[in-house]
Amino acid sequence: MKHLEGKRIFVTGAGGALGRASSLLFAREGAAVAVVDISTEAAEETRRLVEAAGGSAVAITADVRDEAQVRDAATTAAKELGGVDTLFNNAGVMPHQDESFLDGDLDLWHLISSINLDGTMLCSKHVVPHIVAAGGGAVLNMSSFLAVLGCSFPQDGYAASKGAISSLTRSMAVQLGPKGIRVNGMAPGPVLTEHVEQFFPDPEARRVRLERVPLGRFGHPDDVAGLASFLVSDSAAWITGQVVVLDGGISSNYL
């Protein structure tokens, strides 16, 4: 049995590694997917991959910082999919220039927040009414394990935005529960994508980080997709207001 059969899922940042892996798994599990990305080319590629695997998808170009574009994307998704009952707020940035607040650049801080936090709010604002119209469903927000613990390799703009998303997740869950909508977050640790690889500039930097991982490896995009698929499925029907850490045990490890 396909765990997401009949679901209609709006995925932001669907052209990136985590959004693409999640969209592909959602489709394999029976969902129709609106793959939304700021890059038309990236969104179309995810759509092509979903359809090549036998799934159903529509590609939509939108900048999550632009309320008009988000509103139009939500309307288009609902029209093309026959409604929307699930939202995965995955779009986000983690710039390599983001370091300690002591050296913080305010423009970079605002850029990170505008995409990660404001984008999550705007997509929720305009997609949730469609979920209400569908009779309920689920919202999943992308946080980070850096919202749970500090790091000796600071990324303070990113961490602050993700901490805010975790708090927003709990508030959304309280507000939307009576409407039949579950809201959860996920907080991944280091997941090896091409972008994250660049945070490990040499073997020693990689070794230091890997020593913190009890399971002995970094995450993969499919690890994120697997948790996302569970949290938006009916198997998680009595889970809401939670931010689930997915980090191979890093946050449990005191060295």
Rank of each mutant, 00 (worst) to 15 (best):
I165H: 04
R65T: 15
E197G: 03
D234W: 03
V33K: 04
E204C: 00
L87R: 05
V191S: 00
Q242Y: 00
E80R: 15
A236P: 03
T76I: 09
I115E: 06
S144T: 12
L168D: 06
L18P: 04
V139R: 03
V148N: 12
G54T: 09
E51W: 01
S161N: 13
M121W: 14
I115L: 08
G16Y: 01
E51S: 06
A59L: 10
C151W: 12
S152K: 13
N184G: 05
G226N: 14
Q242C: 00
L25S: 05
G135A: 07
V70H: 09
T86C: 14
G104S: 15
S252T: 14
E99K: 15
N141A: 11
A21V: 01
G249N: 12
Q242D: 05
E197R: 15
A147V: 07
A225G: 04
D66T: 10
L24Q: 14
L215Q: 13
V36H: 03
G248E: 04
M94R: 13
A134H: 08
L87Y: 03
R170S: 10
F200A: 10
G177W: 06
P95G: 13
G189T: 11
V84G: 06
V245N: 03
S152H: 12
I9W: 01
I239N: 03
S22N: 06
L210H: 10
S113R: 12
A43W: 11
G13Q: 10
V232D: 06
A21R: 03
T169N: 05
I115M: 07
D118A: 11
D223L: 07
V93Y: 05
G83Q: 14
H130T: 03
I112R: 10
F153P: 02
G13D: 08
G216V: 06
S124L: 05
D222V: 13
